[in-house]
Design a protein around this nucleic acid. Structure first.
Lengths: 138, 138
DNA sequence: TTTAATATGCAACTGAGTTGCAAAAACAGA
DNA sequence: TCTGTTTTTGCAACTCAGTTGCATATTAAA
């Protein structure tokens, strides 16, 4: 994991620092998009300052290693981009009862046809609904 | 417009108040999702307090007259739901250069197939890319 | 009208994300 | 391995969208 993190940093010419490696390691393990706070929690006592976490995430987004996953919440969530297709991430499902978000297996959705002259960079799909657990407890 | 706003309020059993009518009227005219601040601006001097605007928007979202459109920004954007299909809104395009967002004409996207036991409420598509204007000015 | 229920405005608050700057760490070259 | 330059980090103070509590005003049903 840690090794993989270091490789990723090298691949985009970012200096290899403790905070960056730790943050990337968390992202590599995460099963769904995570917030700054969750990252800090996971790293524990040696977690970097929140400013550093945000700055690192922003660097990683800029290098396209990480994506901001837009969810119906106030807080930003991040996930590794390495499972995304060229123009499309996997869809995210958010339960409107329990607010839990999960990644859906990559589905090949057709890309929306853009008006002439527009360039597609990335298409994201977000789904709201009721998850299995919440439906049963009704 | 104002008449339409009143009808919408009646249809969901919300009391007809000046702020609500004004806010709905702005939403009815808006060509793309708008923020609290933009709504206040459009209404002008007689604009309700920002707390009222937020509370009204939340009421309208709850009644499903309005949707929160999730964009890659810090501020919330709202739009009328009346052009959305039952499980799907029209896609939004955000230019990663100029940050402008626009609605794309309703396209019929297939719905993602959810795992067993899940209920689909709404599917949203968000596209990032370069808009026509920005591409030409490069 | 009158009254009970609901909505509004205000001011103070919250909390995610940002900024500026001094101190620390990374790395290239000697 | 040391040195100097560049980049990164931590801290504290800040910003600003959205929230909360409560007193006052408005709605609409009787």
């Amino acid at each position: 994991m840690k090794q993989k993190a270091i490789e990723l940093l090298n691949s985009v010419n970012l200096r290899q620092t403790q905070p960056r490696v730790a943050i990337l390691t968390v992202l590599l393990k995460a099963p769904a998009p995570v917030t700054q706070e969750q990252i800090a929690e996971q790293i524990g006592d040696s977690a970097p300052n929140k400013t550093t976490i945000y700055r690192t995430l922003m660097n990683l987004v800029e290098k396209d290693l990480v994506h901001k996953a837009y969810l119906q919440e106030r807080t930003w969530h991040f996930e590794l981009a390495h499972h995304c297709g060229q123009h499309q991430c996997h869809p995210h499902f958010t339960c409107s009862e329990c607010q839990q978000t999960q990644c859906l297996p990559e589905v090949s959705m057709p890309l929306v046809k853009l008006p002439k002259g527009y360039v597609m960079e990335r298409q994201q799909v977000r789904i709201e609904g009721i998850c299995c657990d919440c439906r049963e407890n009704k």
